[in-house]
Design a protein around this nucleic acid. Structure first.
Lengths: 154, 154
DNA sequence: CCGTATCCATTCCGATACTG
DNA sequence: CAGTATCGGAATGGATACGG
């Protein structure tokens, strides 16, 4: 399957993976959420080569997940900031973090989790709630064309 | 950065991406959630070459996300079923689907979303809730070592 | 400090052919 | 049907050197 023929993909999961399914992308978003803005900050944090960081940042800007602005320190360079679309990825990051916390880490391993910034306490487990308010178990979730309203609230 | 040196990674997001960050993996989980179990079913659904599918299925079994069982139709082959660990990925899939629904699809494009199986209505937007019950905006979420309880509820 | 431009190694993936 | 074996091309990533 081609990584580039997904603009017509109908599955919302596949579609999102086409945009952010790359290894670095969500880590950049995570760092941006943590307040990193400068090229060098991302590079140090990620340990990625500069050329691939450049590519990823460009792609994220092209997708509207990051936006550039003149650097606030007066230097001639850019800052990279999350857009609303980028911030909307937070539930994805939280879901990933919670999953590995419960199912991947060994009990005594140190870990960095999604936490509430104010209290530094872990976020409550994300709950999947149906349109009528029922909490759904995993088996009750399907991927399908919805009955009526595609857009609006997801 | 190496895809294989992440067993000691402390960031929960990175850790999960190391396990499921590959393009095919979450699509297989999505299909398994939809009820697909047989090799050929996955192959037709994904359009992936058989050798690739073999590799991915093996990796998922090794990670404990899928498990094999003798085929229920009496044939000599295997079935692949989600484990509890695999079903726990549903919030990740829902988060991805909701994000692309709101931020990637064009308004009039058809789409397949996470829906409640009973009603075929979209799932409510996932909410990020702090330990004390406050709903958190994206900016209020950080990734950090938690104050005290790492395991247990995420 | 912020990128860009090359180069090279590796990985990945699709197609195909083959086996039980 | 359910895989395994092999091959070649493409994309990716890392290292490094270079330029504004």
């Amino acid at each position: 399957m081609k990584r580039s023929s997904m603009e017509n993909e109908v599955c919302a999961v596949a579609r999102s993976l086409d945009v952010i399914g790359d290894w670095w992308t969500l880590l950049i978003v995570r760092d941006a959420l943590a307040g990193l803005r400068r090229f060098g900050e991302f590079q140090r944090s990620l340990g990625a080569a500069k050329n691939i960081l450049t590519t990823r940042l460009r792609a994220l800007v092209a997708q509207g997940i990051l936006e550039t602005a003149p650097a606030s320190d007066g230097s001639a360079y850019q800052e990279y900031r999350l857009t609303a679309k980028g911030r909307a990825l937070v539930p994805v990051l939280v879901a990933l973090g919670q999953w590995s916390n419960e199912h991947v880490f060994l009990p005594e391993q140190e870990r960095i989790l999604p936490v509430d910034r104010a209290q530094r306490l872990p976020i409550q487990p994300l709950q999947v709630v149906a349109a009528d308010g029922r909490r759904l178990a995993p088996e009750e979730v399907h991927f399908d064309a919805p009955q009526r309203p595609p857009a609006g609230l997801s």
